Computed example of a mutant assay.
Amino acid sequence: MFMAVVGLGVLALHLYLWKRLVRDTTRTARARRIGTVVLGVFALLAVAALVLPRFVGIAAAEWFAWPGYLWLAVFFYLLLLLAVLELPRLALRKWTKPNGETDESRRLFLARAAGVVAGAASASIVGAGTVSALGPPAVKRVAVPIGGLAPGLRGFRIAVVSDIHLGPLMGRAHTERIVRMINETQPDLVAMVGDLADGTVAELGGAAAPLGDLEAPTYFVTGNHEYYSGYQPWITELERLGLNYLHNENTQIVHNATAFTLAGVTDVTGKTFDDGPDMKKALADKAGATVLLAHQPVQVEQAAHLGVDLQLSGHTHGGQLWPFHYVVRAAQPAVSGLSKVDNTWLYVTNGAGTWGPPVRVGAAPDISVVELTPGA
């Protein structure tokens, strides 16, 4: 239902694009008809990419997901740039006020100029963002000082990966590259913090299979998209591949004869599926330093109250498409990187994949290696 509403909104906003890019820039009925048909086809592709995959399946969705999602990104930046260009358009309104053929020519010139500027800029932004999204994730390394960390845990490294988003756009090769890059960092532990796939195990189990080749012990928790894709079958499949599920629970990670508590909670979306997070249960009987896996950064508020030393999260994609960073920041305590809430460190990875358009602007994909160090 939500995606259907979004689809209707996308169609409605295409009317604005039609006014600015077709009606205002054409003189003949034939040119207007051609522009209307082209824009209409793109609008339908965008809505199809948003709404249809869950009804027609991943294999069928591949045919329209690529053009639909890429157009959705271009559409977003066209809207943004044309909205900004409304200001000079209004300022020049008197200059283009119709009182003769010359004034009409000026109006047409300005409309076409705005269309060309917005179109060229949008295509350039989306092109660069596509290269960023589809290229190899950056490997980020960050040291986190943990008060009271046992000496034997100094330098313990956790590879953090999130938001892989297997689906009609990204498949097995995407997973293989991520697994290879993680193994090359030689971490002591791998933490997967949600949103592995946008589809069922039957559709995408083969694409996820390379996760079984992760060399370090790997622990995972659910993200919101697991609940949209059938979370229980995915949990069963990942456990079959040798990954360890932390379902509102914790375990002791032993290293150099010392240990710390690794805990994990389900995503807040799980409440709708009778599988909500229970942080008190997850942190029961914790001992020593405590690292928590929680998909959404917003869960850090309770974690800080319960004395967690470090929370590892994803979900935000780092904003994915600027300026969505500001929208995400309104809903989450952090968008990307390392920050602190009270005495609890929060690290948010940008994630290794994308949701929707395979485009990242101002938020390159990453795999993060978090190194524990002693702190005050």
Rank of each mutant, 00 (worst) to 15 (best):
M3A: 11
A4T: 12
V6T: 11
G7C: 08
L11V: 15
L13G: 11
H14S: 01
Y16C: 02
L17D: 09
L17Y: 14
W18I: 02
W18V: 02
R20E: 14
D24C: 08
D24I: 09
T28K: 00
T28Q: 01
T36D: 06
T36C: 10
G40Q: 10
V41K: 04
F42N: 13
F42T: 05
A46Y: 05
A46L: 04
A48Y: 06
A49M: 08
V51E: 10
P53V: 12
R54K: 15
A59T: 13
A60L: 11
E62A: 14
E62C: 07
W63N: 07
P67Q: 08
Y69F: 15
L78S: 10
L80S: 13
L80D: 11
L81Y: 13
L85Y: 10
L90P: 02
K97H: 09
N99K: 13
E101M: 12
T102P: 08
T102I: 14
S105C: 08
S105N: 12
L108P: 12
R112P: 14
V117R: 00
A118K: 01
A118V: 04
G119Y: 01
T130S: 12
T130Y: 14
S132G: 00
G135H: 02
P137E: 04
P137A: 03
K140C: 01
V142M: 10
G147M: 00
G148Y: 06
V161A: 14
D163M: 09
I164E: 05
H165I: 14
H165Q: 15
M170V: 09
M170H: 15
I182M: 11
N183M: 07
E184N: 13
D188I: 03
L196I: 12
D198T: 12
E203Q: 15
A207G: 10
A208N: 03
A208T: 07
P210D: 03
L211M: 15
T218H: 03
F220A: 08
V221T: 12
Y227K: 11
Y228C: 09
G230L: 03
P233L: 06
P233H: 02
I235R: 13
I235Y: 02
T236E: 15
E237V: 00
E239C: 00
G242C: 00
G242K: 00
Y245D: 07
N248F: 09
H255D: 08
N256I: 01
A257Y: 07
T261A: 06
T266Q: 14
T269Y: 09
G270C: 10
F273T: 05
D274T: 13
D275E: 14
G276F: 04
P277D: 06
M279V: 05
L283Q: 13
D285M: 03
K286G: 14
K286I: 07
K286H: 14
A289P: 12
L293M: 15
P297Y: 01
A303M: 07
D309A: 02
D309K: 01
S313K: 00
T316R: 01
H317F: 07
Q320P: 13
P323Y: 07
F324W: 13
V328S: 11
A330C: 02
A331S: 11
A334F: 01
S339E: 03
S339F: 00
D342S: 11
N343Y: 00
W345L: 00
W345F: 13
L346G: 03
Y347W: 02
N350W: 04
V359Y: 08
R360F: 05
A364T: 08
D366A: 15
D366T: 09
I367F: 10
I367H: 11
S368I: 04
V369T: 09
T373K: 05
